[in-house]
Design a protein around this nucleic acid. Structure first.
Length: 301
DNA sequence: AAGCCGGGGAC
DNA sequence: GTCCCAGGCTT
């Protein structure tokens, strides 16, 4: 095992978040659920939702036969509701095509909806302890700093960083190693305020010690090139969220007329959004989140 | 490559 | 107010 691998595992043993619910349960199904929840969503937001979800759907079969609308209800507070739709589809595919056994090879995992390069490897590493690195933005940042220097601006391509990450995984210890890097990235080697002082890897790191002001300046240059964003309250995303929330509030199995939905939603929307409701409803339907029947009543799918 | 998909928290 | 987050899909 590499020196860095050993150091990071030692750090994890005493500083890692070993009690995260999906680490305690530690099986491929729990990994599948948690990884979908964790896509672009912080640990602290997922933690309280995970247990309730697992209680409602204890295994892949329970999830597969559940109503999609109920799953979307369970998803409240997590955002990116399409993930719930895809997770449900994955559960159905796995029960129908693989007898409920969650695949453990990258190609098969990647063929499932909502499972990309990161999530496939995360399931392999966390669910099956296969020797791969689930390189996410967090791990990529750490590897970049360690071997190529400060990541802003990027010195090498993502593929180069990822290749270096794969080499680093200690054989047979992928679960702990990946967890260690992620915990390390969220507490020590953070994006905004890396704590190089006291970092156990500082001696191995090209980027260390990172000057906070310098990092801030580098980041500002990137930000300057960012396109101006419209306020969240004026975005279609916001309206989508309000519509789905309104439908979540309906008793399971019931629906609301399109007109009533519009009347309920409009007051909480920014004026620029009020003419867009029908189009947004249609987009939600295309995404498989809601259903509009021939009598113009709306419900969660 | 760029835009879209949520929303809460850090700074 | 801006950026960040255990990304993935579509165009």
């Amino acid at each position: 095992m590499s020196m860095i691998g050993a150091r990071i595992l030692a750090w994890y043993k005493s500083n890692g978040r070993l009690m995260l619910p999906w680490r305690v349960v530690r099986n491929p199904y729990a990994t599948l659920v948690s990884e979908f929840m964790l896509q672009q969503t912080q640990v602290d937001r997922v933690t309280p939702k995970f247990d309730a979800f697992m209680k409602a759907y204890p295994d892949i079969f329970a999830l597969a036969r559940a109503g999609r609308g109920d799953i979307i209800r369970q998803w409240v507070g997590l955002g990116y509701n399409s993930r719930a739709v895809r997770l449900h589809a994955v559960a159905q595919r796995i029960t129908s095509d693989f007898a409920g056994r969650i695949p453990e090879d990258e190609a098969t995992l990647r063929s499932l909806p909502g499972i990309g390069p990161y999530t496939a490897r995360a399931i392999m590493a966390f669910g099956y302890n296969h020797t791969v690195c689930a390189t996410d933005t967090n791990i990529a940042r750490i590897i970049h700093r360690l071997f190529f220097g400060l990541e802003i601006p990027p010195k090498v391509k993502w593929a180069t960083v990822d290749a270096r990450a794969q080499e680093l995984v200690p054989s047979g210890k992928a679960h702990d190693f990946n967890g260690a890097l992620m915990d390390f990235g969220s507490t020590i080697c953070t994006a905004r305020k890396p704590a190089c002082k006291g970092c156990p890897l500082a001696g191995d790191c090209i980027a260390a010690p990172i000057d906070h002001g310098l990092l801030q300046e580098a980041r500002k240059d990137i930000a300057g090139k960012n396109k101006p964003r419209i306020p969240f309250e004026q975005s279609a995303r916001f309206a989508r969220g309000r519509i789905v929330d309104r439908l979540r509030a309906l008793p399971a199995g019931s629906s609301i007329s399109l007109l009533d939905l519009q009347a309920d939603i409009e007051p909480v929307l920014h004026p620029v959004l009020r003419g867009d409701i029908l189009g947004i409803v249609e987009a939600l339907q295309d995404d498989g989140l809601i259903r509009v029947d021939d009598r113009k009543t709306v419900a969660l799918v």
